Simulated scan of single mutants.
Amino acid sequence: MLAATVVVYAQPKGYNIGDAVGDFRLKNVDGRTISLADYRSQKGLIVVFTSNHCPFAKAYEDRVIGLDRKFAPQGYPVLAIMPNDPAAYEEDSFDKMKARAQEKDYGFAYVIDETQNIARAFGAIRTPQVYVLNQKDGQFFLEYIGTIDDNPQDSASVHRRYVDEAVGSLLTGKPVQSPITKPIGCAINWK
């Protein structure tokens, strides 16, 4: 008799929907240190784990810029975090991050997670991967985890804009309808 093999997909450890997110401090491309506490005057935050080298991150870059332009004035700015080991891809170095932010005229902070502790705390596994946080009484709570939308290759053929839907729901005081989607992108390069 043969034994059946069962394969179980393990969710990465990290924050779950509804969890309070702990404060952190990371170095921004302009040299300042950015902390989660810096955003307490906002309604929430769109945290995007991204990188310079990943083709998916590049494909989504203009959409991330668009999310910040649309939602920052409404209280949900973008915070981009580069979690990769820069030794794996020179394109992910801090100097290349600074150049990319300037070239694309990022209107949001682009910080490096040198220790990779923040990516681990969130449970991030891909770039890009998005976490939408809602702020209540100075504390940030996780409301959405996943991908930006349903078409990484072609922004003109998108049917579902998951991050847009999540932030739109939060702005109107409604629960997020699809709080978890599968992130699509490159695996994070761990040290």
Rank of each mutant, 00 (worst) to 15 (best):
L2C: 08
L2H: 13
A3R: 15
A4W: 05
T5M: 12
V7Q: 01
Y9P: 09
Y9A: 15
Y9R: 09
Y9I: 02
P12N: 14
P12H: 09
G14L: 03
G14R: 10
Y15Q: 07
G18K: 06
G18W: 08
A20T: 15
G22F: 06
F24M: 14
R25E: 12
L26E: 10
L26Y: 06
N28S: 15
V29G: 05
R32G: 04
S35N: 03
L36F: 10
L36K: 12
D38E: 10
D38A: 03
R40A: 04
S41M: 09
Q42I: 11
Q42R: 13
L45T: 05
L45I: 10
V47E: 05
H53D: 10
P55T: 02
F56R: 03
F56W: 05
A57D: 08
K58E: 07
K58T: 02
E61V: 01
V64G: 09
G66F: 01
G66H: 11
L67D: 01
R69T: 00
A72Q: 00
A72K: 01
A72Y: 02
P73R: 12
Y76M: 11
Y76E: 06
P77S: 10
L79R: 01
P83F: 08
N84S: 07
D85Y: 06
D85R: 05
P86T: 09
A87M: 06
A88T: 15
E90C: 03
D92A: 13
F94M: 04
F94I: 04
D95N: 14
D95L: 15
K96S: 14
M97D: 04
K98P: 14
A99M: 11
A99D: 14
A101Q: 11
Q102S: 11
Y106T: 11
G107S: 11
F108L: 08
A109T: 08
E114R: 07
T115C: 06
Q116L: 13
N117T: 14
I118E: 14
A119I: 09
R120C: 08
R120A: 11
A121T: 14
F122K: 07
F122M: 12
A124K: 04
T127S: 07
Q129V: 12
V130Q: 11
Y131M: 07
V132K: 08
F140M: 04
F141T: 10
L142R: 07
E143T: 03
T147I: 00
I148K: 00
D149W: 03
A156C: 01
S157D: 00
H159K: 12
H159R: 10
Y162D: 12
D164A: 02
D164L: 06
E165N: 14
A166Q: 06
S169H: 06
T172R: 15
Q177S: 05
Q177F: 04
Q177C: 00
I180Y: 12
T181I: 02
T181Y: 02
P183I: 13
N189S: 15
N189C: 15
K191V: 07
